[in-house]
Design a protein around this nucleic acid. Structure first.
Length: 348
DNA sequence: ATTCCACCGGAATAGCGGGATA
DNA sequence: TATCCCGCTATTCCGGTGGAAT
């Protein structure tokens, strides 16, 4: 051990969760499946819409990014457009993102150009493109899926956690369209697979011998099949070790990194809340399981110019979608609770 | 079994902000 | 500069749902 190097991290990019590795571990079947669906694009032909589903951290985004980049290597004049529908949940914003990446004229300006005109311009683009609609279940209006599906120059990849969320609640039209398309289903990673994924990141991103196999196993265990969380834990641990001037990651550091990574991921979501929404969230965090009426009363006491009850109800359902809150009970017995973030419970 | 009522969420509407247009 | 336009948020109205009280 030449303990002279004060650094733990060699290449920080590799530890980012959105990093796309040059080889996707343990997903050969899915890679081949999605590749074959998009294959017509390489011949300039129209490709069918593909649907990718699976729980968070199963590698959906990684898979689609990987396949898209391979496609781009093989076929130079294919554009890849990645739309995060969680951030761009209205039809207008999602379309705007598409045009932003595909349109050669950048004279599109926010707000003033109507949705119809965006569509017209997208329609008139002759460039072939693969459009990835990630987190598509967050779209308030799934219409954009067939907006693009109907246009021959676009190959659409719809990514979502659960298949059923794509159709709900009234999406019969969407259902008939999507049921005919190719469906790639992904499952949680096993612990051994997660260890392999972590090992690949370690080999490329960390200095030698800073973390051992058994520690990777502990991280994989804590992540419970979620690769995004596993990599987040590894990153937190590496950063903590570097901050404290260690030249290796201790078991202690790993143990502390687990809750840190979990709250970091959630914290990013909390920071997107408006001040009003944040007050609602704090009320629920402090009072534990609490009825909607009590939430609203407490919210009104804390804020000068409170919003309407109906508006707060919208906040509540929005925060549930973001996995910040859970609701128990259906009617008068309903209570809200923050998703527990600091209790060390790998099971449940 | 029936009634009550806290709660849910869809639909229509108004006001705001800021970019475009005249 | 004043005015129009459009998406977005918040508000208003309201029908529906299902535990809880009677």
């Amino acid at each position: 051990m030449p303990a002279e190097s004060p650094f733990v991290i060699r290449d920080a990019r590799v530890l980012r969760t959105d990093f796309v590795p040059s080889e996707v571990v343990h997903r050969d079947g899915e890679v081949n499946h999605l590749s074959s669906v998009l294959d017509p694009v390489t011949r300039g032909e129209r490709a069918d819409t593909a649907v990718v589903t699976g729980p968070s951290g199963a590698g959906k985004t990684c898979l689609t990014r990987f396949v898209a980049s391979k496609l781009r290597e093989a076929t130079l004049d294919v554009e890849t457009v990645y739309v995060n529908c969680w951030r761009n949940y209205t039809r207008y914003r999602a379309l705007y993102r598409v045009l932003e990446h595909v349109g050669r004229t950048v004279d599109v300006h926010r707000q003033s150009t109507p949705t119809d005109e965006l569509l017209d311009r997208i329609r008139s683009v002759d460039q072939q493109a693969v459009v990835v609609l990630d987190e598509a279940d967050q779209l308030e209006d799934p219409g954009i899926v067939y907006d693009l599906h109907d246009l021959p120059q676009y190959a659409v990849v719809v990514v979502a956690n659960r298949e059923q969320d794509l159709y709900a609640p009234d999406g019969r039209r969407l259902r008939s369209r999507l049921q005919a398309s190719e469906h790639v289903r992904m499952d949680r990673y096993g612990t051994d697979q997660l260890v392999a994924i972590l090992q690949a990141r370690v080999d490329n991103g960390l200095e030698r011998d800073v973390v051992d196999r058994q520690q990777l196993h502990a991280i994989a265990d804590a992540a419970a099949g979620d690769a995004r969380l596993a990599i987040g834990i590894l990153r937190s641990a590496a950063r903590a070790a570097e901050r404290d001037d260690h030249d290796e990651i201790t078991d202690d550091v790993v143990g502390q990194a687990i809750p840190t990574a979990e709250t970091e991921i959630r914290q990013a979501d909390v920071e997107t809340l408006t001040p009003d929404q944040l007050v609602v969230f704090e009320v629920i965090r402090e009072r534990g399981p609490v009825s909607p009426g009590d939430v609203y009363d407490a919210y009104c006491e804390r804020i000068d110019d409170p919003k309407t009850e109906r508006t707060v109800r919208s906040y509540l359902s929005k925060m549930q979608q973001y996995d910040l809150l859970v609701a128990n009970g259906t009617s008068r017995d309903r209570v809200y609770e923050v998703v527990d973030d600091d209790l060390p419970s790998p099971g449940v």
